[in-house]
Amino acid sequence: VFVDDHLLEKVLELNAKGEKRLIKTWSRRSTIVPEMVGHTIAVYNGKQHVPVYITENMVGHKLGEFAP
């Protein structure tokens, strides 16, 4: 499973602090992992960042699938 390192670091850091804030990313190719559930990730679609709230059903899919 591929997840960009910088994105995973941000998610794990927020989980350690117990925070839930918006994470901006250009990494549409990253796979959604269970650690991301409950976070809102702003995924770049080529024009703007689209906020995507991550749920359990999204695990295993790519971030780009949810930012048309």
Rank of each mutant, 00 (worst) to 15 (best):
V1L: 05
V1Y: 04
V1N: 15
V1W: 05
F2Q: 05
F2W: 12
V3H: 03
V3K: 01
V3I: 11
V3D: 08
D4F: 01
D4V: 01
D4M: 00
D4I: 00
D5E: 15
H6L: 15
H6Q: 15
H6G: 13
H6K: 15
L8T: 02
E9S: 15
E9P: 01
K10V: 14
K10E: 15
K10L: 15
K10Y: 14
V11T: 03
L12N: 12
L12E: 06
L12A: 08
L14D: 02
L14H: 05
N15H: 03
N15W: 02
N15K: 03
A16Q: 11
K17V: 11
K17C: 12
K17D: 05
G18V: 03
G18N: 14
G18S: 09
G18A: 08
K20H: 09
L22V: 13
L22Q: 08
K24D: 03
W26N: 15
W26V: 07
S27A: 05
R28C: 14
R28I: 06
R29E: 13
R29C: 15
R29I: 15
S30L: 02
T31S: 09
I32N: 00
I32L: 05
P34A: 11
P34H: 10
E35Q: 12
E35W: 03
E35D: 09
M36L: 06
M36I: 02
M36G: 00
M36D: 00
G38T: 08
G38H: 12
G38I: 00
G38P: 00
H39T: 02
H39I: 03
H39R: 02
T40F: 06
T40M: 10
T40Q: 14
I41Q: 00
I41K: 00
A42L: 07
A42K: 05
A42M: 06
A42R: 03
Y44N: 05
Y44Q: 04
G46K: 09
G46Y: 12
Q48Y: 12
Q48A: 13
H49Q: 05
H49T: 04
V50S: 09
V50W: 10
V52R: 04
V52T: 08
V52N: 03
Y53D: 11
Y53G: 09
Y53I: 13
Y53P: 12
I54K: 00
I54N: 00
I54Y: 00
E56H: 11
N57F: 06
N57W: 10
N57A: 13
M58E: 06
M58R: 06
V59Y: 08
V59H: 02
G60Q: 08
G60K: 06
G60C: 15
H61K: 13
K62Y: 07
L63Q: 00
E65F: 11
E65V: 09
E65L: 11
F66H: 06
F66D: 01
A67S: 14
A67I: 05
A67C: 09
P68S: 08
P68M: 08
P68N: 07
P68V: 10
